[in-house]
Nucleic acid binder design. Structure first.
Length: 537
RNA sequence: GCCCCCGUCGUCUAGCGGCCGAGGACGCCGCCCUCUCACGGCGGUAACGUGGGUUCAAAUCCCAUCGGGGGUACCA
């Protein structure tokens, strides 16, 4: 820790949270927000809370919950409080201020809503969706030209209307009264002070007509109840901030939230906690076309990147750099280095484009840094059918297969950028037969000396000592013998043996494959080369 | 329409009044290495949106303008 203040102003360690809706997959933009929260918590020795915002219970299946947890575990952002995958496969929780799924806290939201209502901070809105839409249409187009701002002054029903709706048994949502005038200033760590005029902010619905809490209510309640002191989230939530700080204040006034907590039997707040006093709104993550990052741009969920063979450490490093840079300008950072130098107030303000090419380059570097045995282990799921469609390995892999893979890794490690590329190389080593790539055949076998090289190699390798050096010596001798450059003899042999004009280093590949396989492939390719050459003439 | 945010190479960024004839990284282009492809090494390409101020001095401060984005939901 450098100049990090380990404690917040009131003396308690910082508490931050990541609270996605459980759609099933994690968007890279969300992961970056999670990462920044995590880095902040770890840098300041605070607490990182993971909360699931499944207010809309219909979308929150057990399946999607599991997928979220799995993704968070994989990306490596460990949380101190939140849901937890138990050993028996069920979903439990850890932490003293749970539950950490909003679907399990609905009683609290109701208790708070009743208190806000009793205190006169709310009013009922009996309008139907159609009526609301019609009203907005009229406001937008309207002759009076006013913006569609919902305020108690122009929206609260008269007593007569209320009485009539009551007899009609018409459902109603609950709206929060926001100030009619004046302004509120939000202090944002990345943007500085931002001023909002209440006159242009609508009274939000905090409880739907079916009685469930909406995001502004549930999110605000949980942040205060769980002692979140810094709210770090996407810029898309910036405009919602004023009404949330208003709710925070209301919750703390007269112990309103504390009473509600006690009433429904949820854990009490730590008395030292206040309202979230700091905000950090992160710039959007966009595609290279500057539009909001979506499926049109390719992969957007962290799970997809996993299947494509990106390393979690690469994602953490790359995502950290999407909007932030350490003072010394380094880019390849370990977790410890990021935690050491990360500061939210040095996060940039403009939207960042997600550049897969750079991510891929970073990934290649990290793959090269891996211990070969470690890399071997990481490659297995890309070969046994776990991720890809075709399986080159049995599941589980045989010792012979693993030995072959282990031997292959040093040959391919420095030419991979993604783990899934292993399938491009491994086929020639793990399969009995190799398909000769037609393009390679057309390009290489048609050249002078191709079948001569292959046939000569067959003879030479039949007797060569089986070491890389001896194989190299035997093949280089062919070049002299045939009177052509070594490149001209190596390429046909490469195609014959690996099936492609692009492969790992030839001598090492041959050595790894073994004499039997090598000779049989040379034998099989020789007539193909003869034919290709004949046709070319 | 209204509210809010943003604006340095194609992209991520460094820069916080002179050290900037703007630095790094990815990409791209050359060259070297070389049995292919890579790795690696070396070199190059490329940016302060525009217009006004303030100042001896502006990428850095102010204003305007243009451009981009977010919000404007009984979604989160």
């Amino acid at each position: 820790m450098t100049d990090a203040a380990p404690l917040t102003l009131n003396g308690t360690p910082t508490r931050v949270r990541f609270c996605p809706a459980p759609s099933g997959w994690l968007h890279v933009g969300s992961v970056r927000a999670a990462l920044y929260n995590w880095l902040h918590a770890r840098h300041h020795a605070g607490t990182f809370v993971f909360r699931i915002e499944d207010t809309d219970a219909s979308r929150a299946t057990e399946e999607s919950m599991r997928s979220m947890l799995d993704a968070m575990l994989w990306i490596g952002l460990d949380w101190d409080e939140g849901p937890q995958l138990e050993v028996d496969g069920t979903i439990g929780a850890r932490g003293d201020y749970g539950p950490y799924r909003q679907s399990e806290r609905s009683e609290l939201y109701t208790a708070v809503a009743r208190r806000l209502e009793a205190a006169g901070h709310t009013y009922r809105d009996h309008r139907t969706a159609e009526e609301l839409e019609a009203w907005r249409e009229q406001q937008r187009a309207g002759g009076d030209g006013g913006p569609p701002v919902v305020k108690a002054a122009n929206f609260e029903h008269t007593d007569d209307e209320l009485a009539r709706f009551a007899t009609e048994d018409r459902p109603a949502s609950l709206r929060l009264r926001t100030p009619a005038s004046g302004a509120t200033v939000v202090t944002d760590l990345v943007r500085g002070e931002i001023r909002f005029d209440w006159a242009s902010i609508s009274d939000p619905v905090i409880e739907r007509s079916n009685g469930t809490a909406t995001y502004p209510l549930a999110n605000s309640i949980d942040d205060v109840a769980q002692g979140i002191d810094l709210i770090c989230r996407g810029e898309d939530l910036l405009s919602v901030t004023p009404r949330q700080v208003l709710i925070h204040e209301l919750l703390l006034a007269d112990g309103l939230l504390d009473e509600a907590l006690a009433e429904v039997g949820l854990p009490p707040r730590d008395p030292a906690w206040g309202a979230p006093r700091r905000f950090a709104h992160l710039p959007m993550v966009v595609g290279m076309d500057r539009k909001k990052l979506s499926k049109r741009h390719g992969s957007v969920s962290i799970q997809e990147f996993r299947r494509q063979g990106f390393l979690p450490a690469t994602l953490r490093n790359y995502l950290a750099l999407l909007g932030w840079a350490p003072n010394d300008g380094r880019e390849r950072l370990t977790d410890a280095e990021m935690i050491e130098s990360f500061e939210l107030d040095s996060v940039g303000r403009s939207a960042a484009a997600f550049d897969v090419d750079k991510l891929t380059a970073f990934n290649g570097e990290r793959i090269r840094d891996l211990d070969p045995d470690d890399l071997t282990d990481k490659l297995v799921p890309f070969l046994d059918g776990t991720y890809g469609d075709e399986a080159l390995l049995d599941d589980p892999a045989t010792p012979q297969q693993l030995a072959m893979l282990r031997g292959l890794v040093p040959l391919i490690q420095e030419r991979m950028q993604r783990l899934d590329e292993v399938v491009n190389y491994a086929g020639a080593f793990l399969r009995d037969h190799v398909e000769l790539d037609p393009a390679s055949v057309a390009k290489v076998f048609t050249k002078a000396g191709s079948y001569e090289s292959i046939e000569a190699a067959q003879a030479a390798l039949a007797e060569a000592e089986w070491t890389v050096d001896a194989i190299e010596a035997a093949l280089r001798a062919l070049s002299e013998e045939l009177g052509i450059g070594f490149g001209k003899v190596a390429q046909p042999i490469r195609v014959a043996v690996t099936g492609s004009s692009v492969s790992p280093p030839l001598f090492e590949s041959i050595e790894l494959m073994g004499r039997e396989l090598t000779i049989s492939r040379l034998a099989a390719a020789a007539p193909v080369a003869r034919e290709a050459r004949a046709e070319a003439l």
